[in-house]
Amino acid sequence: MNGPLDFTLGLGDDALIAAQRLAEWTTRAPEMEEDIALTNIALDQLGAARLLLSYAGELEGAGRDEDALAYLRDDRQFRNVLLVELPNGDFAVTMAKLFFLAAYQLPLYTALAGCADERLAAIGAKARKESAYHLDHGALWVKRLGDGTEESHRRMQAAVDQVWPYTHELFAADPAAPVDPATLRSAFDDSVGPVLAEATLTRPESRWAPVGGRTGVHTEHLSYLLAEMQVLHRAHPGAKW
């Protein structure tokens, strides 16, 4: 990646696509209280996305604001990791995605809060508190599903197995970035390991490790997500909302 612009864009896209996926749960959650909780997390991610994309637009200096970046780029121009664009699946898959993403975003934003770039540091300081709550929420459900019923254990293990390969991309080295993701791996392992153990879940072996999100080579899912997200905005070029 190339310095703070790509880095900021990548983080902003992670948050935006995560928010879009989480918001798909609204009106569909397993319990009404959980509907509210998932929406809170979606709102946190959306808030972080707006700050990051606005800043990315400024770094780029081409006059693009948060909406231009969110609505007028094609999938090949998005820089989010593949994990966030994966379909929600069942509640277990969504919790696996939430838990792993938070276990990455928490040390990331914490490190960012101390970085030299003031804007990124301020965003990191705000977002790390939110990530701490997301991690807590994800861990809470991973434990309940892992150590709940036979069915929930089976579903949670399947979800971990399905999502795990996509976690490797989160830590691809980028020494030039304000925070090198490779340095976050041990914090991730430290928070994920004990929760999986307590949840009576097996941590999958690391073999297949798909990548491509940070360079714009995505899964087939992203362009459908964007088609839906962007359809109205693109149908009215230049309109204000």
């Binding site: 928010a19 918001a23 996305a49 707006r50 969110a70 009215h236």
Partner: peptide, 15 residues
Amino acid sequence: ISRAPSLKRKAILLA
């Protein structure tokens, strides 16, 4: 929610 035409409107509608 998924098609809200700006990020601000998306946040408001979600809330």
